[in-house]
Design a protein around this nucleic acid. Sequence first.
DNA 1: ATTCAACGCTTTTTT
DNA 2: AGCGTTGAAT
Length: 714
Amino acid sequence: MTDLLSGLNPPQREAVVHGDGPLLVLAGAGSGKTRVLTHRVAHLISERSVPPSAILAITFTNKAAGEMRDRLEQLLGGLARAVWAGTFHSTCARILRTHAERVGYSRNFTILDQDDQTRLVRSCLNEAGYDPKAHPPRAVLSAISDAKNRLQSPEQVAAETGSFEDEVVAAIYQRYADRLRASEAVDFDDLLMLAVTLLENDDEVRAGYQGMLQHVLVDEYQDTNHAQYRLVRVLGEPQRNVFVVGDDDQGIYSWRGADVRNILDFERDYPESATIALEQNYRSTGNILAAANAVVENNHDRHPKRLWTDRGDGDPITVLACRDEHEEARAVASEAERRVSEGDSLDGLAVFYRTNAQSRVIEDQLVRRGLPYQVIGGPRFYERAEIRDLMAWLRSAVNPADELSLARLIGAPRRGLGPACLERLRGVAAQSGVPIADVLLMPEHHVGLNTRQRDGLAATGRGLAEIAEANRNGTPLDQIIELALEVSGLTTALAKETGIEAEGRLENLQEVARVSLETGERPDAESPLAGFLEDVALESDGDKVRDGVGQVTLMTIHNAKGLEYPAVMLTGLEEGLFPHSRSETIEALQEERRLCYVGLTRARERLVLSHAESRALHGGRDFRLPSRFLGEIPAECLDAPRPRRSAPRAVTAPPAVTAAPDFTTGDAVVHATFGDGIVTAVEQGGDLVRVRFRQDGAERRLMAGAAPMRKTGE
DNA sequence: ATTCAACGCTTTTTT
DNA sequence: AGCGTTGAAT
């Protein structure tokens, strides 16, 4: 394959043909890292005769893995199919299913999602006699998750408690882990932790994988956590052909345990490693890059680098000052309409925001104007209550030990069965040593229950048995799901309800059977249903981005990682929203800034930044100041300020700080965020002022029209 | 024992 | 605005 290297620049080429040993590729945004990864794999196979099955490529989403496989197939043909490409979680799930018995699990273990996890933590808190109000389940869960990411067992956590809260966490962690075990269930963090534990402690299993794998490649390395790091390390031995690609400026998951130091420390951990930096950007115009560079340069603790392009400046960036979120939404819709009228596809337009809640008003406007769109993330299809009900039946049929699913399906559909019934079942099961699913089928044990409840339980047991039998005898997946819908009584119950909502929910349920046929083959799954359940559990929002369908794409910036669009609108650039008010520490603020950097660098040609002066939030309405990130963008990258107002400003103007547009050098000013300062220079004909602030002594360039700043009287 | 309606509270990002 | 809890009705 001679063309494997053509079209690559020298550092890209160097990375692709790198010999043995570890390599760190510091790949700036838009520098062609996906291409480098793919071509590296192709190079290994076609030029270095590495067997495809000896290569493991870990990507951030399943979609990225699929795209890599497609691309490899174009380069190499069917040979490429044997490359093992997946996400960290799917890779670990596959390892664990293969060796389940070695970690003391059934091969049919259930993978819990966040909602299941929170419920279970809540239940553990209640069981242990702690008040969920004093110890928010989400916070406790997050602490447990942190511990698992550090690969700490409940015992280890218990040994290191330093406060009462730590002790609560340790106690709940222990209880939570026990409940998971009893239910043959694992959470997302267990997938990583159990796989690492297995590989590190089981010589035979480890030897198997280490003997099979010659090369490990990891994308988005900056967002790996400690457990993921350990997985890569153990799988990379003994050859240490570990090829990691990342960008410390794009680390946006530290709150999830990702450790940017993994990338900064790579050279220390692999002293023999080489480093290659990719700084030429092939994606964005000069103005967009200049803005992104300028913003991220306000961060410390980064590998110094500066993206460059030979594409020219391109159009200036547009900043829209909107009155409120509705006007911002109208601006989004107008941008979409403008695109259509200019003959461009809506596929090329993406709208980003910091929080999922922001999508609603934007959706309203797009619907109103008949503009097609897709929302990535937010409440997911599989997280709807009725779908979760159905999934509980399916999961229980595959994994009879799954008590969480059992608890859910007992009450769905509503038929006079509730928590009390479940408690009784658990009691009987514990006494007799019979699995709960079997107790369901034995009405003689249903003492103390009324006829209706007894009948209900027996019917539930029969239904589950029927689904399980269908799964066992190879009934097609969609028919199993249809069967589950029927024997569970879910459709019957919904059909009785009136109203448009029930209709929608009924349609959603039917949709599951239809969608189930679209999932790919899973040769490692025990049954198509088991494979489907795992797909659903490990599916990420990013996997659902569809392109080529003529729709505007709406998503959080977190979901935008790794994507690019000709036109990007970054909305809600307001203090308190972006950067988010919960990001108070320096570290958190720097991560917000990296997030901003990620958002800006998704744009190829057109970039629109918007902020609203007031925004409705949790019921009330707040006045909002423009984000400091806007102030960090050099004015020469920006369009002339273009306030977007559909009503006279006086009517709705915030009573807060009002900008005085005519600053002169030497003026004493006060800024909403930075406090007191002195104007040191006026640039761009008065649009931009330089101000040195007393608070930190730093000089900042601010937009005179947009900055939340006014002159102070002497 | 279950279900439903009203109330009050908390609000980031996600594999 | 959405969720979990609480209290009353069935």
